[in-house]
Design a protein around this nucleic acid. Sequence first.
DNA 1: CGTATCATTGAGCTTAGTCAAAAAGTGTGG
DNA 2: CCACACTTTTTGACTAAGCTCAATGATACG
Lengths: 233, 233
Amino acid sequence: MRANTTTSAITGDYRHALEARAHPLKSLDTLAMIRPCHRSQEICSQDGPAEYVYYVVFGAARRCVLRADGRRQIVDLLLPGNFFGFTGGDAYDSSVEAVSEGTLVARYPRRRVEALADADPELARELRQVALDALSRSRAQLLILGRVTAVEKVGSFILEMAARLSDGNTDRVVLPLSRYDIADYLAVSVETVSRSLTDLRNRGVIALSGTRTIRIVDRDALEEGERAGTRLH
Amino acid sequence: MRANTTTSAITGDYRHALEARAHPLKSLDTLAMIRPCHRSQEICSQDGPAEYVYYVVFGAARRCVLRADGRRQIVDLLLPGNFFGFTGGDAYDSSVEAVSEGTLVARYPRRRVEALADADPELARELRQVALDALSRSRAQLLILGRVTAVEKVGSFILEMAARLSDGNTDRVVLPLSRYDIADYLAVSVETVSRSLTDLRNRGVIALSGTRTIRIVDRDALEEGERAGTRLH
DNA sequence: CGTATCATTGAGCTTAGTCAAAAAGTGTGG
DNA sequence: CCACACTTTTTGACTAAGCTCAATGATACG
């Protein structure tokens, strides 16, 4: 059960980062290989053989789909503690890329994980839970895309990030994403993301320190969204 | 994927309708209770105890979320062959309602299904697959909501329905949904849905027989979407 | 046969997309 | 450390798409 520190493929330096985290596949940590990724580096590619399942230890990753018109859409955002790469078929259905430099990803051989799950009902339940977590993220994103105005979308995105990245303090968020990434996640243009953030700042709903750090000043206004987004004359 | 169109929705003998279908929980059919539902009847309610998992035998159901501003969003569409009601916690995270009159839903006791899965790796895999199917539907909807214009959204919605309801003929779709439901699924207004359909019909991309039956005339135009939706002057 | 729901169409207005350019960071090599 | 190139972010002006309000047709159902 206890993972040893001798099996890391690249270097053992990252292993403690994995071991420090409590996650559903804890018992499989000895099978894991840990890899640091560069910005925009592809971790697994669409239609490629689904040989591994992955776990984000540090940083962030994005699940991307490229459209016929060249537009990119981000259909999932993977943050520390999230798994990805589970799929029904034998190929990945979309590609995943590291968002920030130095993103740490652990990789487990899929076949072996599934074989172990056949003999371990507890593990099987946990795999099911991992799939349901991904479903839950997807639904959350659907709810955000379903909002009416861009300011509301950006607002609920900030709240989602604050909740998912919360390190105790839920009022300060350091976004791992660029404006472009946010735009592709929310399915709006970069300019609109920028304008929405400016708008929220001007209204005193959020405060910006640099481009990546957001402080939530008026959480109620963000949550209501409607009222804040609707001009009352 | 044969829908049992001769089903005795009136006679009350629904069991053969379930048994006629091949699905991953086949071995549990003896545990199932089958219930016919009225239009808009709630099948399971948000925050209610998650005692059952469900399977759509006939008809259609929608997973609904109500927003603070009174707006409704449909975050999943359940068609014959789809399961729903799996959840991580002990309560359903959203409510599900029957869309069409006479929708047939089979209900399996969740605890017993999960207990059986602990002893049956094959069943455990199938439950995992069911969760991944739901994830796949959610991603598909994300891709639709991510499209730029309303005509594109409606177009890809039609294609999705044609694929999911295909009873051999993939060029003719009978929508189980009203325009309002489509609007809430695509997160656009009813008027826009109506206008988009009219637009597609005027351009000869689709043909309408009544309000619910659509014939796909020019599939390429629907799939490209971009070109069809962009006015070249 | 009337009534409620659903669907379509029109007019005006707001929002967000596009194109364009400036400003602010970021990193690299001299 | 600075200069330079490159990327990211912001802002502006214009345009077009879709929402809202409103009214009219069409369908379904009792």
